[in-house]
Design a protein around this nucleic acid. Structure first.
Lengths: 230, 230
DNA sequence: GTTTTAAAGTGATATATATCATCGGTTAAA
DNA sequence: TTTAACCGATGATATATATCACTTTAAAAC
């Protein structure tokens, strides 16, 4: 894979706020170090437990991030979209990945050595600041997910998932998603069967409309009320 | 409350790695700005939803951090111990607290304006680095908790809680805790009744010993196996 | 075009765990 | 001293949801 997919880091700088604080020579250094990659749907970008050498920045497509537990259990803890790097906490801890990343659409990404980014954090305070801001936002989203997963039951959790998919992930309504029912279940902390059932209930009640890969939230108020009442 | 409780920031610097990277004048600045506080058991240090003005650094005692959800639901997401500041992601986001902090033992803490710390992050790269390291470690612990809460059932979750209390929070075995059964339940994502029941089972099976506020893990292997098998 | 494979969907059943109710013991308030 | 409030403890019951077993549909492979 060459560097032909995205012309340069300047391109991403225009699309993402994170890189704005980088000076010309810093951006140049990143440009020199980066490796551009392409991933097909379902391909793994990195696997939980493996050593983390690189920071991954998504330039196109969509990536799901999930924790693999015992007994084939998986829980999707978030998504990475263009243009954003995937914050890998292990890079600042035990140098291991603590979740796996898999492309759920055709995805292109830039890989930059972790040390290069960490050096930028050390030398560019503004970059460090936006780095921490990003982590903070992610922590807050994790809190919301923990709340949903532990305090709500199936309908409430699915409502949260649907709202999140529409407002945060795909940012549209209706949205077109090739997430499987298993994926949606893994997002909501339930079995595939429960996910299918509750989606059917929502559909029958006119809260959502499903047409192939397209999902539309047709009664957001109702869905939000379901989310609130667990 | 005056500044009599801890003599100076130098004292904490000797006890905690975070402050080591601060230069004399930076430390002096923090010293000038800090307000020392004392909290009784059960007293709230800050509440979820309230604006966050200060960074809180625990100098003695123990603090529980929990998310308040709907219907009186609470989930304890961590503890803060001496000497460590509580990372408040809202300080880098919406300036709101996303969880509450309550003293579970007699606690003293230093409050430092969020901006002072944020300025240090901007001006002292080494401090920024250890700041990010701390957040990273916390994120990893959150992942572990999510895994436990969503993929294990009551015995497994309680095993995780007991192991965490012994190895991470109290760092001793046996450990003396004045956490209520409700607290332990909130840590494990179950009801108070379920917590009481499973603790009794563990006790009857000789996995743990309970004597008043003292809990001893008497069969760690067994407990770890329970944790693994959900 | 037939065969294979994977995903979606559905019903029946089992079970883990919440919920409810109650009681004793302890501590704090009146 | 009495009353109230709270925590720990325990049993009975209800129920949400996982599990299992199976069918249908759709896509991929041969």
């Amino acid at each position: 894979m060459g560097k032909s997919i995205t012309n340069s880091c300047l391109h991403c700088m225009k699309r993402s706020g994170i890189f704005e604080s980088l000076k010309a020579e810093e951006l140049n250094h990143v440009e020199m170090c980066r490796v551009s990659m392409h991933y097909n749907v379902g391909e793994m970008i990195f696997k939980q437990g493996s050593p983390c050498y690189d920071f991954v920045c998504i330039t196109s497509g969509l990536v799901k991030l999930y924790i693999e537990g015992a007994q084939e259990h998986r829980i999707i803890i978030g998504f990475a979209k263009p243009v954003d790097y995937i914050f890998v906490p292990g890079a600042y801890d035990d140098k291991r990945h603590h979740f796996s990343a898999v492309a759920c659409e055709e995805t292109t990404a830039c890989l930059v050595e972790a040390e290069v980014i960490q050096e930028l954090v050390k030398t560019n305070p503004t970059f460090a600041n936006s780095f921490i801001r990003k982590i903070s936002g992610q922590a807050i989203e994790l809190f919301e997910q923990i709340t949903s997963l532990t305090q709500k039951q199936v309908p409430g959790r699915m409502a949260d998932t649907l709202i999140k998919l529409s407002t945060k992930v795909y940012e549209s309504n209706p949205f077109n998603s090739n997430l499987s029912r298993q994926d949606i279940a893994n997002l909501s902390g339930m079995t595939k069967e429960s996910a299918i059932r509750i989606l059917k209930v929502f559909k029958d009640e006119g809260v959502i409309r499903i047409d192939g890969n397209e999902i539309e939230i047709t009664d957001l108020n109702r869905l939000e009320s379901i989310s609130k009442n667990g």
